[in-house]
Design a protein around this nucleic acid. Sequence first.
RNA 1: GCCGAGGUAGCAGAGCGGCCAAAUGCACGGGACUGUAAAUCCCGCGCCCGAAAGGGCUACCCAGGUUCGAAUCCUGGCCUCGGCA
Length: 405
Amino acid sequence: MAKKFCFETVATDKKARVGKLVTPHGEVETPVFLPVGTQASIKSLDRRDLEDMGETEPQMILANTYHLYLRPGADTVAKMGGLHKFMNWDRPILTDSGGFQVFSLGFGIEHQVGKMVDLFSKSMVLGEAVAVDPKELVVRTKLCKIEEDGPTFQSHIDGSVHFFPPEISVETQEKLGADFIVALDECTSPLHDYDYTKTSMERSHRWEVRSLKAAKQRNMFGVIQGGPFEDLRVKSAKFVSENDFFGIGIGGALVSKEKMREILDWIYPHLSPQKPRHLLGIGTIDDIFTGVERGVDIFDCVHPTRIARMGWLLTKTKNFTLDLNKVAYRLDSGPIEEGCGCYTCQHYTRAYLHHLFRARELLAYRLATIHNVYFMMSLMKDIRRAIAEKRFAKLKENWLKLMQS
RNA sequence: GCCGAGGUAGCAGAGCGGCCAAAUGCACGGGACUGUAAAUCCCGCGCCCGAAAGGGCUACCCAGGUUCGAAUCCUGGCCUCGGCA
């Protein structure tokens, strides 16, 4: 019997590589982008919407352990035959560990930041007191506290308290039955200083070792932390490469596009080439090029699906977006993007979507999400082909030119 | 014709002597969004100056009046809506 899980590199173009990821639910060609289906659903889309994309159909998706643990509960999903059956999706799934929620429901809430911060709009100095414009802050309560044994969450749904150590994260993920699971870590904030980031990284490593010990199968991704600090990132990269993880997750605070590039360069020499690399939670189109160029194989991000629901459609124009809420599209009879093969572009006009968004019709979210997912999938396809044909640099250059046009 | 209710920002609708350039919602304009507390959130929304703090001007149907002070009280007018003829 063939190995249940394996990864091999098929083609390379400098550091960029095309790979094949084998799972019990079929093969995945990398570099791949995983649409995010946090609560076992890519918001507003149904399997049919994805299948209609044909060759551009998503190959693998991401779901979230913490959210599904809270609702409907891992046992419920298990009784319903596991995540694949439950959500009627028979291609590979990766479940995130809940590590991002340690951050987003904790420090992230308190300081209103994400993995990246805009250093120009928020006045702050890394590692020093946070001085964000008070007007930008909405006082919200922290929903996670961290101790050595593990994080304790207060449910954002009903306020109930949950101790969520690595062992529970792994057990939950195994009950859900995803193809790939992720070790529990703490995603650090761009605002954390060296000392905190170091302490946190070391604790994450201990949590990850515990995750590994608790796991029954060899399909786990470890996660590199270390924030924007070179020595920490290198140490963490070695830790994940050397331990018995199937794949390498690159997580934590990436701070900015420039810093992310540096971080990827620092860790590259320490990444085991046999393991697939997942740049967690990234990203935007330009960030994907940055990642692929530095050897990243897997991406996931809420960006395309989230902005779709805000009326932002991905296009090959300035900043890659079209804000369909603007009056300018009221009488625009063209498709979202000329030449796009997605269902939305084949059947509807910009004017219609503009109307749906203004009227907050539910169909708006679905049609926009279909387009954005299709757009990302076809971008990844182009990237794979370009690497195989050793013209990745040229493809990247052309795309980035579009962004600035 | 008589009786009753009412006329407030683009709309709906609070306010009923000073804290009112006027609640709230919608609409409108702008901004944000990177391992989803997100079909969300933030800001603006009479005019002018200011980066802001703030300042100035004109305002709650129209015309008068009372008062230190009126969207708010009084008188007259115009107009709407309900009931009765």
